[in-house]
Computed example of a mutant assay.
Amino acid sequence: MSRREIASLGENETIDEVYLVSSKQLRPNRQGNLYLQMQISDKSGQVNGMMWNANDHVYRKFEDGDYVRVQGTSQFYNGAMQIIVTSLDRVDPKDVDESHFVQLGGAEIDRLRGELAGMLRAMKNPHLRNLAECFLIDEEFMQRFCRAPAGVKNHHAYHGGLLEHVVNLMKVTQAIVPFYPQVDADLLLIGAFTHDLGKIDELSYDKGLSYSDEGQLIGHLVMGVSLIDQKAAEAEKLGGEAIPQELVLRVKHMVVSHHGKLEFGSPKVPMTLEALALNYLDTLDAHVISYGQLMKEDVNTDSPWTIYHSSIGRKLYKGEPSS
């Protein structure tokens, strides 16, 4: 019997399948009765799960990031798919085919890591090359960087997602700089590499995807600046000379301004050409991926349009279904 992937679920289908469960919360309703809310996912997507008349015993049957056999019924609610869960049982990971839950396999991670190192080591600026090298030779850092997601929901929200996002963004920067000779190619490339580095500590991804305490209290932009300061000091020892402070300042400015606007979480708006370019290119990559995921997971399977998404203020046109 074929596996029932999240993305293929229709309305009022009977569910009996193993999924990854995270973000569990035991909540009271208006009458004071407890219900369990959770995120249910596989590599095809994720949906909200609701279990009515739950209790503390059910809540403690599994932890965030566990594989769980979910029984219940799918339904549309406010234009989105969800699963009304009737039964939950934790499944031993040894009995699970992890390929159903992994977006990027080991070979793909290794390929992306090789591309990342190749682009960084090809930079002409020796100071920026030494700075990048201090990250690349730090195996503990690289292991975490290659495993981290780029987010918990909106884009590249899976193990290896940060690496994939960064490598793709670096390739995009290399593609556009020939048309803008006034932009420093190496500086923009190192900005693409460093802009989200703080996410290795901002996010928690050992079991499920969530925010760490440090991530919620400080955030990846500030955390990224701290990482750059640390590696800049190491790079001066590696290169045997001081890195120009203006150069380090420009790199840190790209990190703190890459969200583009103060209301989007940037403590500073872009004030250099490289920071401006990084903001637009990062937004492009993130939005193309996240909007594409909304189209892929859309419940309006018979319509060329997605449902209206309040988070982006629009519906999306998917095109006429192929015959």
Score class of each variant (00 low, 15 high):
residue 4 R to Q: 15
residue 6 I to K: 00
residue 7 A to N: 10
residue 7 A to K: 14
residue 9 L to N: 03
residue 10 G to L: 14
residue 20 L to H: 13
residue 22 S to D: 13
residue 24 K to D: 10
residue 35 Y to R: 04
residue 39 Q to T: 14
residue 46 Q to A: 15
residue 46 Q to W: 12
residue 47 V to K: 02
residue 47 V to W: 03
residue 53 N to E: 15
residue 57 H to P: 00
residue 63 E to Y: 11
residue 67 Y to D: 01
residue 68 V to L: 07
residue 71 Q to R: 15
residue 75 Q to N: 07
residue 79 G to L: 13
residue 88 L to C: 00
residue 88 L to Q: 00
residue 90 R to N: 14
residue 94 K to Y: 09
residue 96 V to W: 04
residue 96 V to F: 08
residue 100 H to W: 12
residue 105 G to H: 11
residue 106 G to V: 11
residue 111 R to G: 00
residue 112 L to R: 09
residue 113 R to S: 15
residue 114 G to C: 03
residue 115 E to V: 04
residue 125 N to V: 10
residue 125 N to G: 06
residue 129 R to Q: 14
residue 129 R to V: 14
residue 130 N to I: 07
residue 132 A to C: 14
residue 133 E to G: 05
residue 135 F to R: 08
residue 136 L to C: 13
residue 139 E to S: 14
residue 139 E to H: 13
residue 144 R to N: 08
residue 149 P to E: 03
residue 150 A to T: 05
residue 150 A to Y: 06
residue 150 A to Q: 06
residue 152 V to E: 08
residue 155 H to G: 01
residue 158 Y to G: 01
residue 159 H to C: 06
residue 161 G to W: 04
residue 166 V to S: 06
residue 166 V to N: 02
residue 172 V to N: 02
residue 177 V to I: 11
residue 178 P to W: 08
residue 181 P to R: 08
residue 182 Q to R: 11
residue 183 V to T: 13
residue 189 L to N: 00
residue 190 I to L: 15
residue 191 G to Q: 05
residue 195 H to L: 09
residue 197 L to Y: 03
residue 201 D to R: 03
residue 201 D to M: 02
residue 205 Y to F: 15
residue 212 S to E: 04
residue 215 G to Q: 09
residue 216 Q to C: 12
residue 219 G to V: 04
residue 223 M to A: 06
residue 229 D to F: 12
residue 229 D to A: 05
residue 231 K to P: 05
residue 232 A to R: 10
residue 233 A to N: 10
residue 234 E to M: 14
residue 238 L to Q: 06
residue 241 E to P: 03
residue 245 Q to C: 09
residue 247 L to E: 11
residue 247 L to S: 08
residue 248 V to Y: 00
residue 253 H to P: 06
residue 253 H to C: 10
residue 254 M to A: 08
residue 254 M to P: 04
residue 259 H to P: 04
residue 263 E to V: 14
residue 264 F to I: 02
residue 265 G to Y: 10
residue 267 P to D: 10
residue 271 M to R: 07
residue 279 N to G: 02
residue 283 T to Y: 08
residue 289 I to H: 07
residue 293 Q to R: 05
residue 295 M to E: 12
residue 303 S to K: 06
residue 306 T to W: 02
residue 308 Y to M: 02
residue 309 H to V: 11
residue 312 I to V: 15
residue 315 K to C: 13
residue 316 L to K: 07
residue 317 Y to R: 05
residue 318 K to T: 09
residue 323 S to L: 11
